[in-house]
Write a protein that binds this DNA or RNA. Structure first.
Lengths: 343, 343
DNA sequence: CGAGACTATGCATACGGTTGCATTTCTTTA
DNA sequence: TAAAGAAATGCAACCGTATGCATAGTCTCG
């Protein structure tokens, strides 16, 4: 149906290989021939057949992104949507297509990931998911496919020597807490989660502790709320179910912005004013956090930088093979001070 | 590198075509041979090479979704993230992969869409975008690729006979307004947008008008606020910049949930209480709208149904060709009554 | 002016599958 | 038991592109 290089060859009165070489700007072909063929190709609206090309070059110009299975649950967490949007943008720049796969396919027995990799549908993998099945892990380690962990990485000795790009969550937790300590707060509550399978929240809590230690402040364990989730509702419940805490606490470090917004909603219901009665810090710096007054002070994750770097590293791996030093890029978050802690 | 059907043939002591037929469960092959080969394939972790397969079958098992260029701007609009999540889910069920493309590529001259289609990287297209360049439009009409419009469709005679799946936005606007009218409101404000290129908001306003006519109520044009956007900020500004309106209006139909939330924020600042002082209705029924108290009464768009149907229709087209009657599916939205209009 | 070097092009094969047709093997039936 | 029919398998072409190698044409230079 569509026009092929053979058709172009016929039209130009040359061989198919000359057409192929011309379109690929091979130095073997004279400029005049190239020009002529390029012109014809343009007129005919020619585009390479991706499959034929992949078959011979072993490159699909497509990469895969692996998300956790319950990614959908996070779609209400704007962090992930923004993340994904950034990623899509980064890859558009590189002229690569993106296919999304989930850690475990719910509808078929065969892992879609394997199919993508062995079937050569993707040239490499970005993995934004820390809980891979041991089956998948094994497969990844043994396969030759380049991959880089993004956003976070599994706390697993098996994945020591692999590329990763992620945010320094501990530092983020530290920054948030330090800010509150510096502003004179002594009773700082925090809402974290232990249900979520990644390690991010543990690290953020770790940062919370480190800041206390650094500033020589006792930690009141009763101020650490483990509400079991990283959603709006978790923040709301976290406050509602622990009202007594907020009689003594003068500040709250909510470990992500959605949780912060949930907490904020609860505070409003309880007539606890932000920032007068309680200072509030979030994490992620999603767009939504600038909407609600007082605008949320939060820890910014450099999403754009993260996705760009990850893409670059992955493409480097794809182009130059598995060799080369491991890239372990820990990006530094920054504190964005707005009004939720006073001015 | 990877194992091929030829390798399997060698292992099984049969010809490559027998392997191919076995793996495709062809009736030509005896059950015993099939079993044997399937077993070997399993042991070897065989997966078809997608490119080789596509090349000969002309099917990539991948479809494309076209989003507007400024899709990123909407990522703060949870409607779109949820939409995309649903879509991904629907396609996972059908064992198809998804590639996202944007109406106009910002980084390269050549349209990515053309490349995907002519290069046969996708078998069909879902189009969730009403503003296609005339170039792209022309191309779509002339190409043989199956496509279905999703979410909304261009108001364009060129696209009369094409498949579409969308929500009845007019009816949605009607339902929202009717609800308010029935509850006795006579001065109902609405925040709409005329900047957004789709027609949705025009239709929602149309529904607002229709309801008034049906219930024989005069329309006060001064109550129609065109704030120029469909974001949180638009809702906030819409209220803030038109405070005088809300001295007479007793209800607000915000034409999407983010706008409603923005308006809510403004109302809170102005100490206008929901629902006592003003009743509020939104549109979309995003998850976020159930978080904030009073929970938002809104018009639910049947997203899951929409994406599923669109996928089904597209796959039907892909499988059975361009023929067959046009599917023009207008889904009915429903009113979800929560607390933002009183109880 | 002819040999050698270089440039530009064509030929043929490979990539990994699918599939029409030929061929072999096994049944069936007269 | 042999011929015919059916079932199972193999052979070979093909999908559209890339590329090593052979070849034809051009240029240089002694």
């Amino acid at each position: 149906m569509s026009i092929t290089t053979k058709d172009l060859a016929l039209l130009a009165g040359v061989s198919q290989s000359t057409v192929s070489r011309s379109l690929n700007d091979s130095p073997l072909i004279s400029q005049s021939t190239k020009d002529r063929i390029l012109k014809i190709a343009g007129e005919q609206g020619f585009e390479f057949n991706a499959s034929a090309r992949s078959l011979i070059t072993n490159r699909s110009n497509t990469i895969g992104i692996i998300y956790p299975n319950d990614f959908m649950d996070y779609s209400s967490n704007l962090y992930f949507s923004t993340f994904h949007g950034q990623l899509q943008k980064s890859l558009e720049k590189e002229n690569m297509d993106l296919i999304v796969a989930f850690a475990n396919n719910r509808f078929s027995d065969a892992s879609n990931i394997k199919k993508l990799i062995i079937g050569k549908k993707v040239d490499g993998l970005l993995i934004a998911c820390t809980t891979l099945s041991s089956d998948t892990k094994l497969f990844l380690k043994s396969s030759r496919i380049p991959y880089v962990f993004l956003h976070h990485y599994p706390d697993d000795p098996d994945f020591e020597g692999v590329d990763k790009v992620y945010t320094d969550h501990l530092r983020g937790g530290y920054l948030a807490t330090e800010h509150l300590l510096k502003r004179g707060h002594r009773k700082i509550a925090t809402i974290t989660t232990e249900e979520y399978e990644g390690q991010e929240y543990k690290l953020r809590t770790e940062g919370y502790r480190t800041a206390h230690h650094f500033y020589d402040r006792e930690i009141d364990e009763s101020l650490i709320i483990r509400e079991g989730g990283c959603y709006f509702q978790s923040g709301y419940d976290g406050v509602m179910n622990h009202r007594e805490i907020f009689r003594k606490a003068t500040a709250l470090f909510a470990q992500n912005d959605m949780v912060a917004l949930g907490a904020r909603e609860a505070f409003m219901e309880l007539s606890i004013r932000i920032p007068q009665d309680i200072a509030l810090v979030g994490f992620d710096d999603i767009e939504l956090s600038t909407y609600f007054k007082p605008r949320l002070t939060t820890v910014h994750q450099p999403l754009e930088q993260m996705t760009q770097l990850a893409c670059r590293h992955l493409l480097d791996r794809i182009n130059s093979g598995k060799s080369g030093i491991t890239k372990d890029v820990k990006l530094q978050p920054t504190l964005v001070i707005r009004e939720s802690c006073g001015s």
